[in-house]
């Protein structure tokens, strides 16, 4: 049974900062499974029963129109929304294979 924990990231983080934030939370909480806009922040949902990633941390990529544009070595976790430097944007959440 999934057991998740949701924490918030500052909405003012840039894309590289948000990706760093995700990797830091994954080191401690477990793999991220969802990203969405929380109350005035970006909400990350982490599976606290999953193995703690030590590499291949999940990354956020900007969504282009309706499409997730990902390199071949990335696999999509989910699509969601995140604040990037204060702007709520459609994003893709992906992890290196």
């Amino acid at each position: 049974m999934a057991d998740t924990h949701i924490v918030g990231a500052k909405k003012t983080y840039s894309l590289p900062e948000l990706n760093q934030w995700i990797s830091e939370q994954e080191m401690q909480l477990g793999p991220i499974v969802n990203i969405a806009d929380g109350d005035d922040c970006t909400a990350g949902e982490f599976n606290i029963l999953g193995a703690l990633p030590t590499s291949k941390f999940a990354r956020v990529a900007l969504k282009v129109g309706a499409a997730c544009v990902l390199d071949d070595d990335l696999e999509l976790i989910t699509e969601g929304q995140a604040y990037l430097s204060g702007v709520l944007m459609d994003v893709c959440l992906a992890r290196p294979k």
């Binding site: 918030g8 830091e24 939370q25 401690q28 929304q81």
Partner: peptide, 27 residues
């Protein structure tokens, strides 16, 4: 416009700032 339509709020427990090396040590 699409983003506003699809907006979904999650119940955030608390905010966490970037921690740098401390995060790696805790991990």
């Amino acid at each position: 416009a699409d983003a506003e339509e699809k907006q979904k709020k999650l119940d955030v427990a608390y905010m966490v700032e970037l921690q740098g090396p401390l995060a790696t040590r805790k991990g």
